Computed example of a mutant assay.
Amino acid sequence: MGSDHRLAHSAAAVLDELTVADVAARVRDALEGVFDAVCRTGADTEAVLTSAGMDGRRPVSADLAALRPGLHARLTRYELVSGVGFVAAPGVLGDVPAWLEWWQITTDGAVRPLLLDLDPEHSAYYDYTHWDWFTLPRDTGQRAIAGPYVDYLCSDEYSLTLSAPVTVAGRFMGVAAADVYLRHFEAGVMPLLQCLPGPARLVNARGRVAASNDPHHLVGSLTKGPDFAAVLAGPASGAEHDGLQLRPCDGVPLILVTAAPPATL
């Protein structure tokens, strides 16, 4: 049975009348395993980069080969993870201008590396530094969820990317990240959204819709409204805006957007 079917079955088993807080907590539960894979990748990367510094030298791309056993294991251990790795900030490594130590799992279960042209002197150069999964952790120091977007580089699948900053001695070194196919994520969370009494959607810090049961706010569209990043940084109970209730998902950087409850007299 595929992971999307397992998640849908698990969610369907608890679909009694859930509150907004219940749904936000279950969305968190669905993604904390992925962030665990990201956290472990970040910790391994920090250790590799720190070890190079203790040897009195700058790290090089070959040092990151030490990450591969852990990356390969995470691709088979975490059922939502379709790709995982470390993406270096420009100038961190001594032998190359940029680097992705990135591995992904294919539909037949094989694990393979992602190979890109990262030489800025070449016409096929791939500049990853403008993508939300890189800029949000770099600029905020917090973990992030980017997308959904069509991942033309890795899988041609509609995907989310979960990422977190990697730092050594206070210096930003890059991001640890993991990809999740959107269809697998939706299988786990759509039954939860559908059990709420009205339209509901999940949006990220940019206001991009990651899942929705509302035909007026389709997946991938942008939600206009308040500063969603500020909502994520605010109280755990969330906020109200223009007739909407905005509830952060208990530490995971997504916001559950529903109609605000009616005012009580």
Rank of each mutant, 00 (worst) to 15 (best):
V92I: 15
W103F: 14
T135C: 06
P113T: 13
Y125M: 08
L114I: 13
T129G: 08
T140Q: 07
P90T: 07
L136C: 09
W133P: 00
W99A: 00
I105D: 01
H122A: 14
D132C: 00
V111S: 11
P120E: 01
Q104M: 14
L116D: 01
Q104I: 10
Y126P: 03
Y126S: 06
D95L: 05
R143P: 07
D127G: 07
F134A: 02
G91K: 06
R138C: 05
Q142T: 11
P120M: 03
W133L: 07
D108E: 15
Y126W: 15
H130R: 13
V92Q: 02
A110E: 15
H122E: 10
T140A: 00
D108N: 15
L115R: 14
W99L: 01
E121L: 10
P90W: 10
I145K: 03
A144L: 04
V92P: 01
S123H: 14
T129P: 09
A98E: 02
D132M: 00
L100Q: 01
P137N: 11
W103Q: 06
I145H: 05
L93W: 05
T135F: 12
R138D: 00
Q104Y: 11
T107G: 13
R143M: 10
V96H: 08
Y126D: 11
E101F: 01
A110H: 14
T135W: 04
T129E: 06
V92C: 10
A144S: 14
V96W: 04
W103R: 10
H130M: 05
A124P: 07
A124Q: 10
T106K: 13
P97A: 10
W133H: 03
S123A: 15
I145M: 03
P137L: 12
G141F: 12
A144G: 11
A144E: 05
L118E: 05
Y126A: 08
T107Q: 06
V92F: 06
W99I: 00
V111T: 15
D117S: 08
L114N: 06
F134I: 04
R112T: 15
G94A: 15
P113Y: 08
L115I: 09
F134D: 01
V92M: 06
W103D: 01
S123T: 14
T106N: 08
P90H: 11
W131Q: 07
L136S: 07
T135M: 08
P113M: 12
Q142F: 11
T107N: 09
Y125T: 06
E121S: 15
L100P: 01
W131Y: 05
G141N: 09
Y125E: 02
D139K: 06
R138F: 03
L118W: 04
T140I: 00
G91I: 08
F134L: 03
W131N: 02
L100A: 02
L100V: 12
L93P: 01
W133A: 03
A98L: 02
I105A: 15
Y126L: 12
V96Y: 05
W99S: 04
D108G: 14
L93S: 07
R143I: 05
A124M: 05
L100T: 04
A144I: 00
Y126H: 14
Y125W: 13
F134H: 09
L93G: 04
D127K: 13
H122G: 02
